[in-house]
Amino acid sequence: MKKKPDTTLSPLYTYHEGMNWNPVEKVIFERRSIRVFKKKEVPDSLIKRILEAGRFAPSAGNCQPWKFVVIKDPQVIEQMERDTIRITRLLMWFIDYERGPVRRILLGTPVRLLTRLVPNMLHPIPFNLLQRIASGSVPVYHNAPVIILLLVDKRGVGTPSLDAGICGQNMVLAAHSLGLGTCWIGMITLLMKMKKWRKRFGVTYPFTLDDCLILGWPRGDYDGEIGREVQLVEWIREGSPQSKTTERQGE
């Protein structure tokens, strides 16, 4: 639909109604998760520049509860891919109730009960993705040249995983503004079930690993504006303390 529209950009630190995007907004609105990468190498200096954006992210009490691990070895990434697929196959052998008639009868009810116990992990979207990974039709790390692991220090102030998310988003926006493509890969949590990989990446107390970033030079021009669902926003304004008005954000 609307690809990158050719408009002049507004300067930073100014606002008037209906003005064009400024460079930061342009990066935010045209950012897409990139999953197809060139074989070209990403220079170390560029990765360091992106990590620098993460280092200066806001965090609760300025405790910076994160640690970065950069993986650039294609052999290690290949091993990670293989092991993730293996562990996904093992998991799906136990919980995939849509695979055949026998499984549908035996596993259907218990797995759907389990969905209620761990709703975030077994949401229909990741469940579908797990099925696709197990069948080999979707890759996990998309042959990315670089993986940045975002380890979270459990001892941080407040909600450390939220701080790590803010840090990651800083790095994502910095990477996109420099011409790289990134994508969040949450399936690394499955790999962290293996002791071998936990040891290798140093994911021991106090660190945990929930998410990682893949990055590389995008093959083709896939960034661009898209449509999203209209959001219902509740406004509590000065004049009406009891009643709140719902407005449709985006229309």
């Binding site: 209906g18 504006e225 669902e229």
Partner: peptide, 21 residues
């Protein structure tokens, strides 16, 4: 959008592009 438990509550099905407010 799923129904029942995982239903999106504060989004409506209409699609809109980023708008310059």
């Amino acid at each position: 959008n799923t129904k029942y438990y995982f239903k999106k509550i504060s989004q409506v099905p209409d699609f809109a592009f980023p708008r310059k407010y």
